[in-house]
């Protein structure tokens, strides 16, 4: 640095300003396609990409088209069931990892890691022959049901996410309360219900809501395992990419985005109430 006082300061302001400008450009970049979808959801034309004029035709059409409304309904149901399942499996596994550690935790972590890093397309192509095998060759009729297939497909990654969130919350809290409960002769099951579960509750709720939004977004696995008649919303959109996108796709996407953001705002509130900092919340929500 030079000896004069003003030069470093000016330089300082310049780097600061360029960092700010760069960040603003990046934020515009991040929001560009979302703004485009929002604007085009008010396109009164016939095709999504060809702007015709401002109107609410897209929003009207999305309510009238049964293909749209029923696909959203399928997504919501599959999302709720897969979130419940993933929360149940993930909470139990997360508690076990945090409270009953041992050599098995290393093996289980490797399994969870593989679930997390396997590309979704590989999950998709392997799950399709598998559910066909279970449903048709083994005659387990339940796997021919569209919703069941979607729930199975969506639950894998979500289970890993919930396990991770619940585990990291409990690892951060020490076992004093649970030990006190055991010392006071509470049976293990009662300690679990009265102490461990309430302690883990913020993580359980956050994990459940995250699973729900992950389920709503599931496109790749769903497009492979789906049964015609129970097409979920993202798969309907994917098939429309081939056959021609209409404005009502954008309109419903805006509605779904509002729904997802509502669920996520709830996650943030739950985590904040339980005392997480902004950066802890970011870590949890990024999975």
């Amino acid at each position: 640095m030079t000896s004069t006082n003003s030069k470093p300061r000016r330089q300082f302001k310049l780097t600061e300003a360029s960092l700010g400008v760069w960040s603003v450009i990046v934020f515009i970049f991040l929001f560009a396609p979302i703004i485009v979808i929002f604007v085009y959801s008010f396109n009164s034309g016939r095709l999504l990409a060809a702007w015709d004029g401002f109107g609410f035709d897209g929003y009207q059409a999305m309510l009238e088209k049964t293909a749209v409304t029923s696909s959203v309904w399928v997504s919501l149901r599959a999302g709720v069931f897969s979130a419940l399942l993933a929360t149940l499996l993930g909470t139990l596994a997360g508690v076990a990892m945090a409270r009953r550690p041992g050599k098995w935790v290393a093996w289980f972590s490797v399994l969870l890691l593989f679930v997390a890093i396997t590309p979704e397309i590989v999950d998709a192509v392997s799950l399709l022959p598998w559910v066909v095998f279970l449903g048709q060759d083994l005659g387990l009729g339940i796997f021919n049901d569209g919703i069941v297939r979607l729930v199975v497909g969506q639950s894998l990654f979500s289970t890993a996410v919930v396990t991770y969130i619940v585990r990291s919350r409990l690892v951060g809290l020490n076992e004093n309360l649970e030990e006190a409960s055991a010392d006071l002769y509470a049976p293990p099951a009662r300690t679990f219900w009265k102490i461990t579960l309430p302690l883990a509750m913020p993580a359980v709720l956050a994990g459940g809501l995250l699973s729900f939004t992950l389920g709503l977004d599931n496109t790749i696995v769903a497009s492979f395992v789906q049964v015609s008649g129970t097409t979920p919303w993202p798969v309907y959109v994917l098939s429309s990419v081939r056959t021609g996108l209409r404005p009502d796709i954008a309109s419903m996407s805006v509605v779904m985005l509002v729904l997802t953001l509502g669920a996520l705002a709830l996650v943030a509130v739950v985590l904040k109430k339980s005392g997480d900092s902004a950066s802890q919340i970011a870590r949890t929500m990024a999975g």
Binding site: L30, P33, V36, I37, L48, T213, V237, L245, L257
Partner: peptide, 22 residues
Amino acid sequence: LALVMVPYWTNFLVRTIGWQII
């Protein structure tokens, strides 16, 4: 942070369609 999160939680396919239009 919330603003970074919004695009991340917008449906992957839908934001990609946004780019197709742009």
